[in-house]
């Protein structure tokens, strides 16, 4: 089970709406709400750490991502 399951689920639920208005940007989710949308990953992290300190938060690019592929021994 992933740590940020609640936030990831919210992200997936909100993704169609986010894609229509902010594709390619980065969303910050905190306390089960979208807290901010930023243009870059760095800007989203800076804002989240400045605002929430070391508290729990979630940052993700707004994209229809394909599953990551890992092949190794």
């Amino acid at each position: 089970m992933i740590t940020l399951e609640r936030e990831y689920r919210l992200f997936q639920e909100m993704l169609p709406d986010l894609m229509s208005r902010a594709a390619g940007k980065y969303v910050v989710i905190h306390d089960a709400e979208i807290a901010r949308i930023c243009d870059t990953h760095k800007a989203a992290l800076d804002w989240a750490y400045d605002t929430f300190g070391l508290d729990r938060f979630f940052v993700k690019e707004i994209t229809e991502e394909k599953p990551v592929m890992h092949f190794h021994r």
Partner: peptide, 20 residues
């Protein structure tokens, strides 16, 4: 601490994606 999550597949997942 983790700051995000994603789905991935590897040899052990038999074509099914897992969250990490």
């Amino acid at each position: 601490e983790p700051r995000s999550a994603t789905e991935y597949t590897d040899f052990s997942s038999k074509g099914l994606s897992k969250q990490t």
